[in-house]
Amino acid sequence: MRRPFLGFGLGLRTEHYSYILEHKPAVDWFEILSENYMVPGGKPLDYLDKIRNDYPMVMHGVSLSIGSTDALNSDYLKNLKKLMRRVQPQWISDHLCWTGLNNTNSHDLLPLPYNEDTITHVVDRVVQVQDYLGQRILLENLSSYVTYKNSEMTEWDFVNEIARRADCHILLDINNIFVSAHNHQFDPESYLAGIDSDRVMQFHLAGHSYNGEMIIDTHDHDVCDPVWALYATALKRFGAVSTMIERDDDIPEFPQLRQELSIAEDIAVRTLQADALVLSDISPQQTHTELNYARTA
């Protein structure tokens, strides 16, 4: 598969709006948190439009709740599609999780049991979402703190099987693999080795916290050395994959975050042939055609 490569991006955060508009920093793309812009109007959408004029974007959501046993939230999907038309993102992602039930939202990314029943349930919903949006989505692996007794397979087999049957893509969060590997005592390299390379469209990198026993996915620190090492392993396994850093708390000044992104660029250049790191031919206004989705079944 020829995977579209956007280069190296950052999460768009309100703290950086003015800096970005004033300095037009060299960043290949931004990832937006979809829910932050699913509002009627005002400054959030004004800044979004201005920054979108200068940069390609991808949309990343936290409330699709693809694994919930509630019906899909049609209002949410309608708003997501409306935002998608406005932003014209390169792609749209959310998490392989559930976030609520009985119309009550936990605002947390809650893990699913890894078994055949869950796969059947989630695949059916991913197909519905992709049909509605008219394009494939990316699903991201979680960091988690519990495992269920009725799980019957590894997380990576679960992720692969859903991506294969639903014909969707994978957003591989390298930090989440590291966090869950520690919390559940599995080998993170086995996780990478087990993931179907053709389905991986994007990497997330982030920092975390250690409370003495568990690692918590807090996104409030720089990316740590073991996660950088795992990133290098992922690059060897998957090749050039669009990569971004998520920072949601204790957010540093933009230049500092940009500096951290250059570590990812350096590792990619050192790990891969330089010619593998050529941006796909994209413009800020373009939606990548390879993600256009038409259900054939």
Binding site: T69, W98, L101, S106, L110, D117, T118, T120
Partner: peptide, 13 residues
């Protein structure tokens, strides 16, 4: 689906 729903009800509860 029934088992998953029960699990989610217990978790959210």
């Amino acid at each position: 689906m029934h088992a998953l729903r029960k699990l989610q009800q217990d978790f959210l509860g």
